[in-house]
């Protein structure tokens, strides 16, 4: 009986100490982590949006699950960025940040997160792949990879990952098209 009591005391003490130190570290790092998260978001926003004078993460509209980051230059909207994702990749979620002109034409895309096969599917993060989406819109392209009868080149040896990216971007563009009025909110738009 005495032995069991000792085991209980030891395990409880160790768990409590671990709990306290984790809570302490979590609390201490909360602000720096939030700051780093914002820097990361701003970094990917800056790569997909045109030069702007506002803070797009402050001028954001959230509709359903998606947040639309609006970039403005001299008070006029010159771009919108949003994150879209697909679970049709080879492993895990493929998250894509898409930057478009207000009329829906893609400025550029950025892969925020992917766990595709290194050396194969992971090539979707390379510039030569991402550039294929530049200048494309719902109207001027067939949103499928070439193998499925669309306009987007797959990567040799990897069709699934480009298919996931193409599907994600198309879904994002569709959602933008549907909510465009609400996102732009009648603001002055650069043509």
């Amino acid at each position: 009986m005495k032995e069991i009591f000792r085991l209980m005391v030891v395990l409880t003490t160790v768990s409590a100490l671990a709990g306290f130190s984790l809570a302490y570290v979590n609390e201490k790092t909360k602000e720096p982590r939030a700051y780093q998260d914002r820097m990361k978001l701003l970094g990917s926003l800056n790569t997909v949006l045109p030069p702007h004078g506002n803070q797009p993460d402050k001028d954001a509209v959230t509709i359903g699950p998606t947040t639309y980051y609006v970039s403005k230059q001299n008070g006029a909207v010159n771009g919108v960025a949003f994150e879209t994702s697909s679970d049709k990749g080879y492993s895990g979620l493929v998250r894509v940040m898409v930057g478009i002109k207000p009329d829906g034409e893609i400025i550029s895309i950025e892969i925020v997160e992917q766990k595709e096969t290194p050396g194969l599917g992971s090539k979707i993060t390379e510039g030569s792949f991402k550039d294929r989406y530049r200048g494309k819109s719902l109207q001027n392209a067939r949103w499928k990879v070439k193998k499925d009868g669309g306009d987007f080149d797959q990567i040799s040896g990897a069709t699934i990952s480009p298919r996931a990216v193409t599907g994600a971007v198309k879904a994002g563009l569709d959602a933008y098209e549907k909510n465009r009025e609400q996102i732009l909110g009648g603001a002055h738009v650069v043509q």
Partner: peptide, 8 residues
């Protein structure tokens, strides 16, 4: 936690 806060 520490790496995500200080060594991003």
């Amino acid at each position: 936690l520490v790496m995500s806060a200080y060594f991003r």
